[in-house]
Simulated scan of single mutants.
Amino acid sequence: MKGLLSNPVLMKELKLRFRAFKSFSGLMFYLAVLIIFVSGFLLIFTQFSTSGFFVPSNSFTMFSVLSVLQMALVMFITPGLTAGAISTEREKQTLNILLTTTQSSSQIIIGKLLSSVAFLILMLIAGLPLYSIVFLFGGVSPGQFFTMFFFYLVTLIAIGSIGIMFSTITKRTIISMIATYGAMIFLGGITAFFFFVGFSLEQMMMSQQQNTQGLTTFLPISYFWASINPGVLILTLLIPDTKTALIDTVGISFPNWIVYLIFYVFITIVCLTIAIRKLRANMKTNR
């Protein structure tokens, strides 16, 4: 903790980010989207009547959809906060000045990442009062709530690391942002597409082999694509029947959240390592 607080890059980025008007305008937009959703949800289930009743069992449905929406917003906002961390310094011609300081490459990269993560955590905390409506009606355990926020944190750190990496290895912010959003599309959409394609192909191969012995379906590749998809993770954490259906489909009972955690931690380490090594790639010494 002392090492983090003594990081000048982190402290400078925190001051600049939290003093900027666009940061809080983005926070207002984020909260406005959540408020509109919660208000619309309550109006629909109370049939747009002031005398209508909200069934407590519907609170879990609201929590589920709100969790999916918040994960989507996290994946949408994070690249915009991290994809220009280093490339913006390069475009402003301030990166060379930053590199001549006593700060190491790891301090610069970690400081840039943590400043973005801190703002994203603030956004998640700012949305907590909306979740209080769910706890008002019940139907959701604190364990589900904290588990969901833990995986939010893992996901946004991994996405932030991807953005920092592209921002370091590319010279233009727009290219870095496109590449980062492309990675988000891959993780959120292409992996789901690969799962359905792989499942269909392997089922077709099994049917051609005329598997009449009643063997259990075993689809490790398809299971991997499903396990690293954030949408599938949210569904399996919220709805146990979805987890059971996935196990029955691929024939693998290994928890998908463990695969998700290992994959995203690995991505974080790899991306940060590449960013640290490439930050001073054109210099004789690499700190």
Rank of each mutant, 00 (worst) to 15 (best):
F266E: 06
I178W: 04
L238F: 12
K15A: 09
P129M: 08
L136V: 14
L99I: 00
N282P: 00
T155D: 02
M1Y: 10
G189Q: 13
I174V: 13
S59E: 02
Q213A: 14
I262K: 04
L27G: 07
P220V: 15
M205S: 13
S57D: 11
W257F: 11
Y223A: 03
K22E: 10
R17D: 11
Q70D: 05
T268K: 08
F21T: 11
G188C: 15
S200A: 14
L120P: 00
D248K: 10
M123K: 07
V74W: 12
P129F: 04
F45H: 05
M165Y: 02
S67F: 08
T170K: 03
R287S: 01
G138S: 11
F18K: 10
F149P: 01
T82Q: 00
L201G: 09
E91Q: 08
L130S: 04
M28C: 14
Q213I: 15
L98G: 10
L81H: 00
F195Q: 08
K12W: 08
I267R: 08
I175V: 13
K92D: 09
M165L: 12
L201V: 15
G163I: 08
T50E: 15
S207A: 09
A192E: 13
L272P: 05
V74G: 08
I35M: 10
V9S: 01
L81F: 11
D241R: 14
L81G: 02
W257A: 07
S176F: 01
F21Q: 05
I274E: 03
N7Q: 09
S105M: 06
P240G: 04
N58Q: 13
T242K: 09
A20L: 09
G127W: 09
L34T: 12
M177A: 14
I175G: 03
T273Q: 07
I77K: 09
C271E: 01
M62H: 06
L34G: 10
I110Y: 07
I159Q: 03
L279V: 00
V38F: 12
F149I: 10
G80S: 12
F145A: 09
F254V: 13
V250K: 00
R19T: 15
V197P: 00
S161D: 03
G143Q: 11
Y181W: 14
L27K: 05
L130F: 05
L95W: 00
T285G: 03
T101N: 02
V38A: 09
L16R: 11
M148R: 10
M62V: 13
F48K: 03
E91P: 03
I178D: 01
T216L: 08
P56I: 06
M71Q: 12
A183Y: 08
L246Q: 10
G160P: 07
Y223R: 01
G160N: 04
S39I: 12
L16M: 15
P142D: 14
S64C: 14
I234F: 01
F29A: 15
G138M: 13
S23I: 07
Y260L: 12
A179P: 06
Q70T: 09
V9W: 02
V9Q: 02
L73V: 10
P142R: 10
K22R: 13
G3H: 12
V65H: 08
T101I: 11
V154K: 03
F166D: 00
F137W: 12
N7K: 04
V232E: 04
F266W: 08
I276G: 01
N282A: 00
I190F: 15
K12G: 12
S39C: 06
K243M: 12
A118Q: 02
I267K: 01
